[in-house]
Design a protein around this nucleic acid. Sequence first.
DNA 1: TTGAAAGCGCTAACAA
DNA 2: TTGTTAGCGCTTTCAA
Lengths: 341, 341
Amino acid sequence: MVTRKDVADRAHVSVTAVSRVLNNSGYVAKEKKEAVLKAAEDLGYRPNPIAMSLRRQRTGQILFYCRDLGNFFNIELYSGMMEYARRVGYMIVMSGTFDFEQINTMMIDGVILPNQEIANRYEKLGKQRSGLPVVAASYGVALVSQRDIPYIDCDVYVAMENALDYLNRKGHERIAFATPYTIFDPVGGGRHIAYLNRMRPIFGKDLEKYILDGYFKGGDAFQQEDFFTEGKHAASDFIRRGLDATAIVCFNDNLALGMLKQFQDMGVCVPEAVSIVGIDGTNIRRYVTPALTSVDLSTSRQGAECVRVLLDMIEGGHVRSVTSVPIGLIEGESVRDLKLK
Amino acid sequence: MVTRKDVADRAHVSVTAVSRVLNNSGYVAKEKKEAVLKAAEDLGYRPNPIAMSLRRQRTGQILFYCRDLGNFFNIELYSGMMEYARRVGYMIVMSGTFDFEQINTMMIDGVILPNQEIANRYEKLGKQRSGLPVVAASYGVALVSQRDIPYIDCDVYVAMENALDYLNRKGHERIAFATPYTIFDPVGGGRHIAYLNRMRPIFGKDLEKYILDGYFKGGDAFQQEDFFTEGKHAASDFIRRGLDATAIVCFNDNLALGMLKQFQDMGVCVPEAVSIVGIDGTNIRRYVTPALTSVDLSTSRQGAECVRVLLDMIEGGHVRSVTSVPIGLIEGESVRDLKLK
DNA sequence: TTGAAAGCGCTAACAA
DNA sequence: TTGTTAGCGCTTTCAA
């Protein structure tokens, strides 16, 4: 390994001079400058990134506290983070363990937590290392229980309303909901509440029949969650219950894909027999037939915003408590227009 | 930030003593030891990872030189790397730029290159920073042009043979091939060669009609490649050419999914009208209907092996030139058994 | 205009 | 058994 000392020796100057040349700072005689440059070139000198980091007390790395790449949503969050970070010279490292303590052993300048539940836990258990900035992605800011952490929010209450509005416009009134969590579990968040608010008037006391829920047993925010498989179960239940709903809103795209798959395996046509809407708007929706109609949560944008806000804290010291990303809807082929009937 | 110095002051000992206690090395009097532990606890001391890294000249990080998470194959490689790395206390950072120089600014102990093409370029352009260990994933070791880098190989020649063998067993003789590269482009590698070898006797001079190729224009190993979209084009071409093949082998799963999607959009039934086999065995194959039959390349295993071999170089100094992962086949529902006819 | 020296947080050889 | 010291590679006073 070639160090500044080596360059200095070769150019017959001090390491200080080398630093000045390489950083374009301070005065240094022209000819010495050239000598340094040449020596550095000859030796193939490369600055040592670790030493740089130690010196400036900054790693240029951010932790995305997540391990599950099985959920396409996380992949998109991550992609958004990567792209933004890359442009501003940062790196994203990904890791999620059961042990927050491990965060303290990492070379990072800040942490991005993937949701409120983990953020809450972090507040309680993890905030050991003083001064490490943290932001969290959140899904309905009204449900955030404490505000010590800035949130980059995506309002899934609105997302659910978008899904239901869209289905209404297509003539659907009786709409079921599939979620892996139990319907009153706060983890379900705004999606659950919005559905209940909108559908209670429609279904009255029959409402709970139309809710396909509770597939995750002993739910734990840290477990690897297989939404796809639970979606298959939800589809089976839908048929078993003989529901007369014309459409189903799914907790997320992975789950929607599971339902779609199971329906197709059972010979139930989508969208002819039943329509499906996902939530997330992940890219994967394009890969299936029928292409999934899904609520667009601007996920990669949310990832990018997480990085932006975090860097604002790291570099500028600014803290903004909540940032939001827009919600849309992406039409696919998984919803039948009943008005064309 | 609390340092060992702070702890030392509070415990009325030297920093050396603190180090010894915290590292369980060397002698230190029992009562001092306890004082140190208590002081560290009181102060909430955490070792500074950057200083540790500088000291031991090791970052505990490995670069996966890749940026494209749109290809499920890369996601699986990455997952395999992450899991293995996690178990041995390393982190994987992911980044791929057009500029190899940037690698020199990263806090990493080694690099994993995602394929031979990039490895070749790296050899030519990048090997600036001396001593940084590198391994590469490869796809047919016979095609590796130089051996300065250890390869973790996955023999896609065999993979293609597996696909064709399987199709033969199911009664398919006339089998087309879809690839985004031109058929004689070495980038295509073993898949191409194996196909040509096996199908030339079948198709004779008509062979090239059955090859749907060349969709990537001005192919560049660094570009973001959209296999899915090119798969759609390949499917359209298949129909347009009016081919009488009963099955198609696809370059990879993403491309296969594109073909499947396009066939379905055009009303061509898979596998009734035409069978499809992918190569990769990515998890995504389960998400579509019909589930994709695909050659299993042990991708996450390959990712893990990349890390294992690289760590062998980093920590042990051992170098092994080629490591291989097994090839299998995962049955889905995208191949029709013609023998049941 | 230049370089010696101190320091970022940590470890290890050495001396006491 | 303990602490002083030098050093990992780099930057930045500070004095010359």
